[in-house]
């Protein structure tokens, strides 16, 4: 019975991946661009998942890291003309450093206190951007004229050809999934999940809880910052309203609705949260109402998220043969 179920799942995943890869050939520019948005938010969701899903920290300010990355890209690109994709590591680094500085003092806060502090953080960042902090963020106007990414000299213009951009962002999404899958199954990932389920016991087992939490924050922030590069180069301009508290809420909902702590769940969450409002476009002013209802209903019927993570098992026979490592 079990191998069969696993087989079905594998086939389903393969089919979805295949469909995803060929989708832009059939669905036209608009829906390709919807998929681009889904992919961007999938990466954002996955990066938040490290903090919220594995680390269990109530973090509702992820848009702040995303904003730092996007603005780093925009500022450096428009000022010195550095190609945007080269700026990805810089954007990640900036967001990571920012996370290190702000998360350090707040990391020990519990649950809802951390939640409001991260909300405060994202609001402060947005207000700082609007007020043109250091005179470099362009205020409410934002920054325009960001160049589109180029891969080996090939311009990937998401406006003219969303399909080109689709493969770029899909590549980044694929790398993200692989790396985060490895991370999830590493010593680090297991420690994080452990301290999420029982912090006191984790501390008792010699896990440096504060260090791990901080590391989770920084990794999540680095990734969100790099995604900011992709977003800035996609839009060609950025402004503070793209990084509001509501954006953080959207990322939060993606993780929780899809299945906190499960990569496949987060991907599905991104597809639903970003895709559904577009599917409801025809309903015009009613679309958000229906979206809200759908959100409630899905949550009520799948309280653990639509695809919750499976509890990790260590079969005894495999342990003896050293097939499972700690």
């Amino acid at each position: 019975m079990k191998p069969a179920a696993g087989q079905i799942r594998k086939t389903a995943y393969a089919a979805i991946i295949l469909l995803w890869m060929v989708a832009p050939l059939f669905i036209g520019k608009y829906w390709t661009d919807v998929l681009n948005n889904v992919a961007i938010y999938a990466v954002l969701g996955l990066s938040l998942n490290i903090i919220l899903g594995y680390g269990g920290m109530f973090h509702m300010g992820h848009a702040a890291f995303y904003a730092v990355g996007a603005y780093t890209t925009a500022i450096v690109n428009t000022a010195w003309g550095v190609p945007v994709l080269w700026l990805m590591p810089a954007a990640g680094l900036a967001a990571g450093l920012f996370a290190l500085v702000v998360a350090r003092p707040i990391i020990h806060l519990r649950g809802d206190y951390l939640l409001i502090v991260t909300i405060g953080m994202v609001e402060i960042v947005r207000i700082a951007l609007i007020n043109n902090v250091f005179g470099i963020t362009g205020g409410a106007n934002g920054i325009f004229g960001i160049s589109s990414p180029s891969v080996f000299g090939f311009q990937v213009n998401s406006i003219v050809a969303p399909a080109h951009y689709f493969y770029l962002v899909t590549a980044f999404l694929a790398i993200t999934i692989v790396l985060f899958y490895l991370l999830e199954n590493s010593r680090f990932g297991r420690a994080l999940k452990f301290l999420c389920s029982d912090e006191v016991a984790a501390q008792g087992s010699g896990i440096n809880t504060a260090g791990y939490k901080l590391a989770a924050f920084v990794i999540g922030a680095v990734w969100a910052g790099m995604t900011g590069t992709l977003y800035a180069s996609k839009m060609g301009f950025i402004s503070p309203e793209s990084f509001s508290f509501w954006e953080s809420v959207v990322m939060f909902m993606i993780v929780i609705l899809g299945g906190s702590g499960n990569i496949a769940g987060v991907l599905l969450g991104a597809a639903l949260i970003i895709g559904l409002p577009e599917i409801f476009q025809g309903l015009q002013q009613y679309r958000l109402l229906i979206f809200g209802l759908a959100l409630m209903i899905m949550m009520i019927f799948r309280p653990q998220g639509i695809l919750p993570p499976k509890p990790r098992s260590y079969p005894i026979d495999k342990l003896e043969k050293n097939e499972v490592s700690f």
């Binding site: 402004s239 793209s242 577009e278």
Partner: peptide, 11 residues
């Protein structure tokens, strides 16, 4: 919202 607007324009 800029992101939604870009999608609306593509549509």
């Amino acid at each position: 919202d800029p992101r939604t607007a870009a999608l609306a324009a593509q549509r």
